[in-house]
């Protein structure tokens, strides 16, 4: 196994009764890569992510995330990843600094580390004046930027982003992606889902799930060539049309 594979899974499967939500998926994600994880609603993305994050046990298959075994070392996985979704990111009724303090503590940083990194984070985001603001009072785009910074506060090997930009205004959405690039440049691997097909173009590689399987996996330019498409939207449509799963 190559050392710079941050995710390496083979035959990963999850069944609920007779329903196979995730059907023998195998793939690798390299260190510092921005990996887009696409699929239609109900294709099995969320179930797959839950297995990768160590919160759902696979029915079959094996693999490692951040160097730890997904079957036996799921607690270690949780400590070495970051996670953010549109639905859950920060505590709305805590202040900005309190959220940072809380997540820093959960991820096992000591007080000195948290204090130093908090200043650095607030300065980088130009958030110094918002230190004492309640998170719920921040505009959505700011919240998402803060949530992303908190999700990588403990410099995890990999961060999982589940539809991080849904509903965010166009300029903010792009600023968010510039933060993703910066994190990737620092060596943090980014695993991201999105329904915006222009964002699929910003990924180094993209996988597309259809009915629990990974039906395509390559760089956006290779996928466009393979499916004779002008953009990722067309690639997605061609693949998703093959779905036979009655939701």
């Amino acid at each position: 196994m190559s050392n710079n594979d941050v995710i390496k899974v083979s035959g990963l499967t999850k069944k609920f009764g007779h329903f196979t939500a995730v059907d023998h998926i195998s793939f690798d994600v390299k260190e510092g890569e921005i990996f887009g994880f696409l699929g239609a609603n109900g294709a099995g993305k969320t179930t797959a992510i839950q297995m990768l994050c160590g919160i759902s046990k696979p029915t079959a298959g094996k693999g490692t995330v951040a160097g730890y075994d997904i079957l036996r070392e799921n607690e270690k996985i949780k400590r070495n990843i970051g996670y953010m979704s549109q639905k859950f990111s920060l505590y709305e009724d805590l202040r900005v600094w309190e959220n940072i303090r809380l997540f820093g503590g959960i991820y096992g940083l000591n007080d000195k580390q948290i204090a130093d990194k908090t200043e650095e984070l607030l300065t980088r985001l130009k958030f110094e004046d918002q230190r004492n603001a309640m998170v719920r009072s921040l505009p959505l785009g700011w919240k998402q930027k803060l949530a992303f910074s908190v999700a990588i506060f403990h410099t995890p090997k990999i961060v999982f982003l589940d539809e991080p930009t849904g509903g965010v205004d166009p300029a903010m959405r792009r600023q968010f992606w510039e933060m993703i690039y910066e994190a990737a440049d620092q060596g943090i691997t980014v695993f991201v889902t999105t329904h915006y097909m222009d964002e699929a173009e910003y990924c180094n590689r993209v996988s597309i799930m259809v009915d629990g399987r990974i039906d395509a996996l390559d760089s956006p330019s290779a996928l466009k060539q393979q499916y004779d498409a002008v953009n990722m939207d067309q690639v997605f449509r061609k693949l998703a049309r093959k779905s036979t799963r009655a939701e």
Partner: peptide
């Protein structure tokens, strides 16, 4: 259509 994939949105 919030949170809905591109095919279902169409």
């Amino acid at each position: 259509t919030t949170g809905v994939d591109p095919v279902s949105r169409k």
